[in-house]
């Protein structure tokens, strides 16, 4: 079985993100970048399935600047067999991502697509769902367990207030949640081997996909600073403040 995973290059989760002074976005120049943690979980899942003998080939796809090659190499060092970079300097919004991924899926015909549930930069949480809709495939989002049985997969989903267990037909799109697995540390010999694995670079135009943005960013701003707290005399005053000032009850 062939599996396709997607990997996004994002600002390293440990870096403190700063908004650009002109409010057009966040500062990315000279900032450490890394693979989106949810994508890392997707890669780890695919590699574990390959190690278990369920999967025969893993393809990783990334979309973005030329440096995304490094992110793909990291995925290959984790155990992905080959990479495809759809290179573009333009802003790629979730729908465009979904269209590109669909075009590659049409070509590669994987039986399973594993994606991160969201990227930690824009937190959109849309691409996986859109890919599934464009393909007309079943989807299972926010999964914390996946077991493949022939033409079906059993998944556990993290939902409000608990866990949902589903059986879905393959081919399908699955998105990962934090508890699915803990990604491995890449080994040094595998970093060396990853350099020799095939990495194909194409452009969105090669896939015939229109990636023009549909959404316009008006302004990016820091969240408001938390103001100092106040002391209340008694419960009565607290309730009154919650009701009249904060208006939360």
């Amino acid at each position: 079985m062939k599996v396709l995973v997607t990997v996004k290059r994002v600002i390293d989760p440990y870096v403190k993100v700063r908004v650009k002074s002109d409010g057009t976005g966040v500062e990315t120049a000279n900032v450490k970048m890394a693979m989106n943690p949810f994508c890392e979980i997707a890669v780890e899942q695919a590699v574990r399935m390959k190690e278990a003998g369920v999967v025969t080939e893993i393809i990783a796809v990334s979309i973005g600047a030329t440096q995304c090659q490094e992110t793909l190499r990291t995925a290959m060092a984790m155990g992905v067999d080959r990479g495809i970079l759809v290179e573009t300097a333009a802003e790629v919004q979730p729908l465009a991502v979904a269209k590109i991924v669909k075009a590659i899926i049409d070509k590669e015909q994987p039986k399973l697509v594993i994606m991160g549930k969201q990227a930690i930069d824009d937190d959109s949480n849309q691409s996986g769902q859109m890919v599934s809709a464009l393909l007309g495939w079943p989807q299972a989002t926010f999964t914390s367990a996946i077991t493949v049985n022939g033409d079906e997969a059993e998944v556990k989903r993290e939902i409000d207030g608990g866990m949902e267990q589903l059986t879905i037909k393959l081919p399908a799109v699955i998105t990962t949640d934090l508890r699915l697995n803990e990604p491995r540390y890449v080994t040094l010999p595998n970093i060396m081997k990853a350099k020799k694995k095939p990495l194909e670079i194409i452009k969105p135009e090669d896939l015939g996909v229109d990636i023009a943005p549909r959404l316009k960013t008006l302004k990016v701003a820091e969240p408001p600073k938390r103001s100092a707290g106040v002391k209340v005399e008694d419960v009565k005053e607290l309730v009154s403040k919650l009701k009249n000032e904060a208006r939360v009850i």
Partner: peptide
């Protein structure tokens, strides 16, 4: 023959990850 700036970066990056995590 196999050494490059990208390789350097990848190795330093993974070493730092291992150091932080373990």
């Amino acid at each position: 023959e196999d050494w490059s700036a990208e390789l350097l970066e990848a190795i330093l990056d993974q070493a730092s990850k291992f150091a932080n995590g373990v």
